[in-house]
Design a protein around this nucleic acid. Structure first.
Lengths: 201, 201, 201, 201
DNA sequence: AATGAATGAGCGTTCATTCAT
DNA sequence: GATGAATGAACGCTCATTCAT
């Protein structure tokens, strides 16, 4: 898909490309996709406009690249976090914690994902990625349901509820209020498992 | 906040203004704020461009107006829904249900709010409106905590968790999958109160 | 084919549109289509760039408009020239003369048609228009053949030969060398009817 | 004219240069001069951009080179075709036939010549080449006129008429409709000598 | 000889906004 | 109140050309 994939790129080229990705990510997160022009990105790097189009087919293509990279990275972290854990409920907890950790370490990426989810150009792509993450959680829930540990008939609904809570708490308290990510993760896990009434002692 | 507020507007003028708001809302929700031009809006109404600037200072001002209207309407519905209810937990439940009902009846408005929350131009305004809604829920929670019915030390965190769940379940299942709003509201309330483990019988 | 067709245009607008067409025709003929930018056209008229796109969907659309106008005008002149003439050979002669006259009076248009015939973007359109003109001539030839006045089995080939001669003589002698169009038309007619050997006395 | 002419070129260099010429000719004919970028040419050959500018001063210079080569080749073929023929009218006929044969065997070159004749950048050069070809034909015609075999006072006009017919018939029937070049040449010769009325038996 | 990287002016096009009528 | 016309800065993108390696 695109000449860019077949172009031979030198070490110097790889570096430039990474610079572009980094700078674009920063600017997109800071000002938004639509308010960041290609001129802004290359200007901020002090290079000519042509450089951008040497490495990417379009502004949109670069954004999609950033998005994909972020979603893949998150997924890898989640997989790593639950590796070896046999308890499905612990797997859910570890997955939620890994997500908040990732977002905390990659605040710009997570912000771009949020934006993309609400822009007609990118919404579908984000939704698809989200479905995958939700399916993972739902699988753990299903296992817990079958083990009789959770009484619910709709693991997908539950999974979505968790993902929604996760996103909102992260945005509000970590990103917005600067609270410690680990503490927020504690509250997130507690809410997702026991709701407002909290764990019965 | 400008010349438009001081302009005397006739009955016919009010109608025109409403037409503009309605059409803009429809188009913004359908194609997105950035992809909808002022020309689209007036063109779709078959009127000249001057009309738009007669009633609104700018495209941004119109969007803010739509946003404010929506948030006020939602708040009014929530207040009406809990009026007379003395049980704080029931008040929370009724508030959540009222929110989903509003979003179901005003899908375009709720979509615009989502967009606005992720656009640098409008995010602050949305956040402020959200804080108000959260404060309401948090007040009910505080009451329940003081009554010893809920054991938690951070009602604001809980309230945000609920609002996040609400938004995501609505988007995914009502808006996205076309499920019945009342059923989704049932699941939402259950999750918010009891979490994944569900109500203990 | 687009929004432009449905736009209400005032008398002033019609004038502007005509100015654009005239100026663009002049510049296209002088510098060529690719070497004439939209900025050149509006700059030459002393108006803003937006004016261009108020009246035309694109630079290409404007060029096509000019082309179509020219071809229609030529056809109308040819039809008028042969109206009432019953002798098919005289009809051919009158058509050829009308064409040279048109080109002489509209040198810019005829140059644009030549350019367009050799540009991949417009070649098909020109070819189609040419086929119509050729069909007219071929019909007259067919009539002459059936009357036993011309001995040839391929009127379409003959018609194309004439059209090719016409274009080249016009370009070389009228457009290029500034010779009198009527005299060139005499030679054209003579060559088309009798070839190099000339009319036998 | 230009540094390139003084550069010593190895055998391998000659090959590269020819590859560039061949590929550029193909692409120019297929997509047009303006729509074919230097990047297209070198990309299609799988070499770097520097190669292009090692062998040619500019895109324009390459095109001019192709043009010149083509015109020279055609002239050589025409000269060879009439060598030894003493009858001036036969020389004309043989020249016309040689031209169609050349165009048939070098369709890309002949298409480029057509394009160049209508582009402000190259028109003059083509015109000059054409004048030479026309002068050849005109010389034969002059000879025939002096021998009393053709009654006409303007051999240059006649020669241009022939060249115009030639080009148009080739384009329409050989290039466009795929007809056999030899048959078209028959019709061309017949038309040029006897016109529409045809040879008197 | 040859490469991939870089330049930057210029392109066609859009669009929020203003304004004379 | 309302219109169609006009503005012009800004946008995403292209591409002939140059250059360090």
């Amino acid at each position: 898909m695109g000449a860019r994939l077949t172009r031979r790129i030198t070490a110097r080229g790889v570096e430039r490309r990474n610079q572009l990705v980094t700078e674009a990510t920063r600017l997109f997160a800071q000002r938004g996709y639509h308010s960041t022009s290609v001129a802004d990105i290359v200007g901020s790097l002090g290079v000519g406009k042509g450089v951008f189009y040497w490495y990417f087919d379009s502004k949109e293509a670069l954004f999609v690249h950033i998005l994909r990279t972020g979603q893949q990275e998150l997924r890898r972290l989640q997989d790593a976090a639950i590796a070896g854990e046999t308890d499905p409920i612990r797997r859910i907890e570890l997955g939620l914690r890994a997500s908040i950790t990732w977002a905390d370490e990659r605040p710009e990426l997570s912000q771009l994902v949020q934006f993309a989810a609400n822009d007609s150009l990118f919404a579908d792509r984000v939704r698809r990625g989200e479905e995958i993450a939700v399916a993972d959680v739902a699988a753990h829930l299903q296992e817990a349901i079958e083990a009789g540990r959770i009484h619910h008939d709709d693991p997908v609904m539950l999974a979505h509820a968790m993902v929604g809570t996760l996103g909102h708490l992260y945005r509000t308290f970590v990103q917005g209020a600067g609270r410690d990510a680990t503490e927020v993760a504690d509250d997130l896990v507690s809410f997702c498992l026991y709701g407002a009434f909290g764990k019965q002692p």
